[in-house]
Design a protein around this nucleic acid. Sequence first.
DNA 1: ATGAAAGCGCTAACAA
DNA 2: TTGTTAGCGCTTTCAT
Lengths: 363, 363
Amino acid sequence: VTAAEGPQYGILVPPVSSQNRESPLTSRGAPTINEVAALAGVSLTTVSHVLNGKGRNSDATRARVIAAAERLGYSANIHARGLAGSPAGLIAIQISGHSTEKFLPASAYYLELLNGASSAALDKGMALIALPGSAERGALARLPVDGAIVVDPQGDETILDVMRDRGAPVVTTGRPLVGDYAVSTVDNDHPTATLEVLEHLASVGYERPAIITSARRVSYAEDVIRTYRRWMAARSCPPIVARLKYLTAGAAESAARRLLTRKSPVPDSFFVTTDNLAIGVAMAARSLGRDIPSSLGLVSLGDTAAMQSPTSPITAVDIGPSRVGKESVHLLLRRLSGEPPPDQALYVPTMLHLRRSTRRSRD
Amino acid sequence: VTAAEGPQYGILVPPVSSQNRESPLTSRGAPTINEVAALAGVSLTTVSHVLNGKGRNSDATRARVIAAAERLGYSANIHARGLAGSPAGLIAIQISGHSTEKFLPASAYYLELLNGASSAALDKGMALIALPGSAERGALARLPVDGAIVVDPQGDETILDVMRDRGAPVVTTGRPLVGDYAVSTVDNDHPTATLEVLEHLASVGYERPAIITSARRVSYAEDVIRTYRRWMAARSCPPIVARLKYLTAGAAESAARRLLTRKSPVPDSFFVTTDNLAIGVAMAARSLGRDIPSSLGLVSLGDTAAMQSPTSPITAVDIGPSRVGKESVHLLLRRLSGEPPPDQALYVPTMLHLRRSTRRSRD
DNA sequence: ATGAAAGCGCTAACAA
DNA sequence: TTGTTAGCGCTTTCAT
């Protein structure tokens, strides 16, 4: 058997440019502000004012303009706006620490966040520009964006500097831990969520929970660990914390095995901050012959499809990645329209989903 | 213990706008073409021509212009270019099928691809606009992009239509299986890679490989399955194929358990098309008490950090997601500059990494 | 309450 | 080989 003649190709023909281009009767491309103005019987200035809510028009005019705009499916050309000096509707988004060198964090989470954010942006007539984890200052400085969203920042990201110099607003997902750049933040209330998890674990009889999380200095990890340490201290238990450089199932498996097979203290349950890590712990449990949940409890911060397996579902905190992305965009939009930053983080609610991995009969 | 006073906030202060804005001596923002022209002692037309390679200038002039541009760190304002009707340098990228409704595909792969693509774009002075999996035609039509990249298309994506109407080039990662839109494609040679995997499995003594892949009609899945079926047919073995709607570890685990515990035909190894799926198979093996590799072989299409666990590394085909992203951008750029589409797909080389999951002693 | 007109930075005819 | 100039679509003073 051979690979035949290689894969079958998609139909590949010359550029489509010649197809229905420059059709004489159709106005090429999107409708312009002039067409709207003409249709509404007003000047383009009026259209601009109405559509930008500069509120100095009669209700009648406003209504006509809006109707005309709707009918034409009009929306301002982003380049023209940008050129004219007002926010063009381009927002940079960077997933911090996510560089090419395989430092791959909880990926399903980020993809969902990205999806929620870009979707919200599109709804608002804006667009999200994806930035690689590593990007030179020069290239960033040249980007025609109105603001930026930084996911899981440490606080030392170049993009923060660049935006500061530009006087452009930044929204972070999670708090930057170092640096003093003024940002607005969308986050989950991780301390409370952590407490809820710990209390749940205790309530079903797990007495020595351990934490596995990222070694990066990101706020969610700090929040979880801090809360956890307090909780353990209050019960006079030694805290058990593993911080991993690579958030992979394999790394979590090794860490869990190590903790489960050492002298003491040995955990009887795990609270991990990524779905990948939960899978790793489940693998460790299986290979050690420890049953989940009867002999080991497991909770994930982050509820992805992987946690909802019919075979062995895992208790997880839904932290609403899509919602986080969406709210980040909305917050940035508000900042862009001149609203001052809120004086505290905006919290996306979390939801603990109890599943089999912690469903143990009380002793 | 309580959650203390909630999380600690990042420093949140008023907008930075007032800091070093409108400094009287500094020209606000990036240098313009005029400044370059002035510095080089030529007209702005000349600068434009030189920088866009319209090649009608003396070498001396060209050199001076380029020097001036470099010195100023000049690069054309993307909005001005866009407005003036030439490619502005904005490219849309969409991961097909990746909508908000948790249809989450092999995520590490996509994140790496995204990173490679955005990095390449930035290097070339362009920027990538992230599109949600689901986006209305209207919103897409309004996007000021010069072209689009569609990852793992089926062929019925709205963005394809929109770009066709616009006469804008599209590059896909994987071939669209339906529809007849003219696209250029970056891909791996999956048939050959599959063959290599199957031959490797056979060479170490696995006789009944099974496939687990996506239920989506995407080209990589078709390529793998088609090649596999031929191979099995040539050896008069019944093919064993599971196609999953959700590409999660849990789904793969169920599928693998089912296949391994049924009457016949029962596989002795798996070739799965995502790292998540490989993890699922590993979980199934453990819970069934089957040792990998001695009693079950496992190969993943896609080599992520998760496959390289020190504890139980998995044989995997590195399909170069970052490179795929990068080449997609480059190909689109070539199309944008008028080059005709190549008449066949551009292949990113793959590399089979042999690891423990298939390291079995020959019988 | 509404409109006229001046740019924003760039590209591309068209002139020279 | 080089320069002049007219827009691209929009926002925004400044008049009316």
